[in-house]
Design a protein around this nucleic acid. Structure first.
Lengths: 152, 152
DNA sequence: ATACTTGCAAATGATTTGCCAGTGT
DNA sequence: ACACTGGCAAATCATTTGCAAGTAT
């Protein structure tokens, strides 16, 4: 799809707002999209397209992976959804909040979490001051041994 | 393959040392491995298996992707090779030095570089102090807008 | 009514596996 | 000699694309 001109959609933080954003862009609110968005907002962690298809079956007559990928792509272009990579598995999708979540992954125990807003801000500041790059851990998480695994 | 017991191989920084490490582990020094390692050490940036196969053809009668992947995996288990991911493309391989290289990628201009040792150390310290994680940017690079792109 | 969407099948790109012939030690 | 390796074909996993039928607006 090519996005028609219009107000650039930012992140939203609930299903209703996401659906409103679809409408605002002139995109159709189909059953498949409703259920997909609902599943994403209901999940407490980023989920794969495969998991979404699984969770959706039953809730929808047929949940096809191709359609799910297509919708995830559309929603991502709209800024309503985002995806991260953990290790070598499939991409994991999550609803996009008003600001991108920054992820942290332990390379040893694989604990995965979202940074606190101020934590993320401090990392941004510190890293920018050292490397010159304003870091983003929303697509590739920050990977490293966590405090526990380091024997803290 | 399952690695036989022996001295755990660390990174090395030249072809001869890598070959010695293979021998030390009782692995065979075949023409394919020689040429593969030579290509990796000759490259000035991480390269894909496909690129390696291309560069190798001519130097070897037949360079098969499957064999290249198998060897890269073996060499990686030995600690002689490492791979990074940039965006969604194929994995990119590089020889592993005595300590892992930490990569930085600009999310805007896609400039890709290796951190200076002290730069990496400062990032490690700073981030560990904030998130509790000792960060590693050898598998997933640190991604963010670079100084130039931020209008520095 | 019409353009956007879906489901299904088939294609693609990256990487892995099975198997037997070839070769380093 | 013998186990380790390489080549080739086929399989697998994640994701994408083509296309005709279905549906939101």
């Amino acid at each position: 799809m090519t996005l028609a001109p219009g107000t650039p959609t930012a992140g939203v933080n609930d299903l209703a707002a996401a659906i409103a954003a679809l409408r605002a862009r002139g995109l159709r609110v189909s059953a498949a999209r409703r259920v997909l968005l609902a599943a994403l907002f209901a999940a407490d962690r980023p989920v794969s397209a495969e998991e979404l298809a699984g969770g959706l079956s039953g809730r929808l007559p047929n949940s096809d992976l191709a359609s799910i990928y297509r919708n995830l792509e559309t929603l991502e272009e709209l800024g309503l959804v985002r995806h991260v990579h953990i290790g070598h598995g499939p991409g994991l999708y999550a609803p996009a909040g008003r600001r991108d979540a920054e992820f942290v992954l332990c390379s040893e125990c694989h604990a995965f979490r979202v940074m606190e807003p101020d934590e993320a801000e401090r990392v941004r500041q510190a890293v920018a001051g050292i490397t010159g790059h304003e870091p983003r851990f929303s697509h590739f998480p920050l990977v490293g041994r966590c405090e526990d695994c380091r024997g803290g």
